[in-house]
């Protein structure tokens, strides 16, 4: 087992869960990486990366460092290394949108993004939307309109919806449906999701 400072990559034999269980205590330490000054511009990136290296990610305003291989996706970095489990792993192939986060303000599928390639960028996840106890208007609108059933797709829906409004693609229900098509909901809460987005649009500055 790796030292606490070098979280192991996902085990190919599927025993990651066991590993996480056993190493929970150690990982707790490993997952509290040193905070780097936010003012740091992340210019000192090493050009070639082989094996485990330090990857600095600016997530929800705070720069955090992880030790990970280049193959680690942004989604796995968020969930498994930074303990930000709001972003969900659905298909892991860019087909369902559950992993949607904002990178430099643009919505992307974090499952098809390498963490190493997002250094120096501003990453926003569902955990970064609320201001303290005050929900983001999109979160509040999803609650009000019951824009979910099981809730698994919801963080991705909300991140995508925030971007959809900011892009100016929420002019009508039809436009919302087209520009939100990258976020699937197996519970089929689409009518409520659409209503939530159209309402939140009027409240987003």
């Amino acid at each position: 087992m790796s030292a606490p400072t070098t979280p192991a990559p996902l085990n190919p034999d599927g025993s990651r869960r066991t590993f996480m269980k056993q190493a929970g205590g150690f990982l707790g330490l490993a997952l509290a990486p040193p905070f780097i000054s936010q003012a740091e511009r992340l210019t000192a990136l090493s050009k070639k990366v082989e094996g485990v290296s330090t990857i600095s990610l600016k997530v929800n305003g705070a720069v955090r460092a992880i030790r990970a291989e280049p193959r680690v996706t942004l989604l796995d970095a968020l969930r498994e290394y930074l303990d930000l489990t709001g972003s969900k792993k659905g298909c892991d192939h860019g087909q369902c949108g559950a992993c949607t986060v904002l990178v430099d303000g643009k919505r992307v599928n974090s499952c098809l993004t390498l963490a190493v390639m997002t250094q120096g960028k501003e990453i926003t996840t569902i955990e970064g939307l609320a201001k303290g106890e005050e929900l983001h208007p999109m979160q509040a609108a999803f609650l009000k309109h019951d824009g979910f059933q099981c809730g698994y797709c919801t963080p991705g829906q909300i991140m995508s919806a925030v971007a959809c409004v900011q892009e100016g693609h929420a002019g009508s229900a039809d436009e919302v449906r087209e520009w939100m098509s990258g976020n699937l909901c197996r519970c089929s809460a689409y009518p409520n999701i659409t209503a939530a987005i159209l309402e939140a649009k009027t409240q987003m500055g």
Binding site: G94, G97, T100, K106, R107, V108, N109, L112, T113, S160, A163, C164, E167, H169, W179, M180, S181, G182, N183
Partner: peptide, 9 residues
């Protein structure tokens, strides 16, 4: 083509 997310990438 694709989705808004994929088109951004």
């Amino acid at each position: 083509a694709a989705s808004a997310q994929l088109r951004n990438m």
